[in-house]
């Protein structure tokens, strides 16, 4: 042992000194992205193939078996109307995922356009648009969603508009801030002196470069959108029974849970949880990766 140590120290200058670290953060971010994307792919597949995976129809009633416990004909039992919980949880993925994605897409498009215009032209246009955004953002998100939903009434399209309206201001602000800092960079001056029109500068130069933060925020936002949707449905302002939607199912089963029939509300709750987790992991992962790149 002593000999060995002597041999090592004798040549110590040639023994490499290794400094650990360097990329642990980005590895962790990659794992988050992979897990999140996997969860979401599974949910998407379930939504697409719901008819094949469910033994019962979305609104099919088994009148003889209301509120039966999991097992037998009904994998996760039935609710008070005799509808199969397992089938409805699977079917609900369609509506939840669809509305959340559509609402965020709409919010991104509208918010980005407003932010681009406000950020680039500035002046009174900027002032007016941003004050409107301020008004929207001065209410607690969910209260605002309640108010808009109550105003517009039920229906899938109205829900999409409601959730988009609540989220669009954040994108407008984000893109506006990005455009305002990009506008000071030399490549924008280069485009202007090269004779590009204002629309050309906005569309070909500022838009593609201002979308980076949007790409990171949008997945996180999908999770929030889904929670908002479920919350509205829970309060009866969203999807109406008998259509399958997780929030509505939780609401419907709430009374039964008190009586010990947990299977009415817990499965849709878990589905919602897993789905939101998927979006969060994906979003956080993308955010960390973007930050790591910036460093």
């Amino acid at each position: 042992m002593a000999e060995l140590r002597a041999a090592v120290s004798g040549d110590s200058a040639q023994t490499p000194v290794v400094v650990a670290g360097g990329d642990r953060d980005s590895r962790f971010a990659r794992r988050m992205i992979i897990v999140g994307a996997t969860i979401l792919s599974v949910v998407a597949l379930v939504a697409v193939f719901a008819p094949l995976l469910s033994p019962w129809g979305e609104t099919e009633i088994d009148p003889a078996n209301t509120l039966v416990a999991p097992g037998g004909n009904h994998l996760l039992g039935t609710d008070g109307n005799g509808m199969d919980i397992w089938s409805r949880v699977l079917y609900a993925a369609r509506l939840d995922l669809g509305i959340a994605l559509a609402a965020v897409a709409l919010a991104v498009v509208v918010g980005t356009l407003l932010g681009l215009v406000a950020g680039y032209f500035g002046g009174w246009l900027d002032d007016v648009l941003m004050r409107v955004v301020d008004i929207f953002q001065s209410f607690p998100t969910f209260i605002l969603a309640l108010a808009v939903a109550a105003l517009l009434g039920n229906g899938t399209i109205n829900l999409i508009i409601t959730i988009a309206a609540v989220n669009a201001p954040a994108y407008a602000r984000l893109v506006r801030a990005e455009v305002r800092s990009l506008r000071e960079l030399p490549f924008v001056d280069a485009a202007i002196t090269s004779g590009a029109s204002p629309v050309g500068v906005l569309w070909r130069h500022l838009l593609p470069n201002s979308l980076t933060p949007v790409r990171v925020i949008a997945p996180l936002n999908c999770g929030w959108a889904m929670l908002t949707l479920a919350g509205l449905s829970f309060l009866g302002l969203g999807v109406s029974i008998p259509e399958a939607e997780w929030g509505a199912m939780i609401s419907l089963g709430a009374a039964d849970v008190v009586g010990g029939r947990w299977w009415t509300s817990v499965p849709p709750g878990l589905a919602l949880f897993v789905c939101v987790l998927g979006f969060s992991l994906l979003g956080e992962g993308l955010q960390d990766r973007a930050n790591a790149k910036r460093r």
Partner: peptide
């Protein structure tokens, strides 16, 4: 030295 460095010498 930055992370991931292998240094030899003195």
């Amino acid at each position: 030295l930055p992370g991931g460095s292998h240094a030899t010498g003195r």
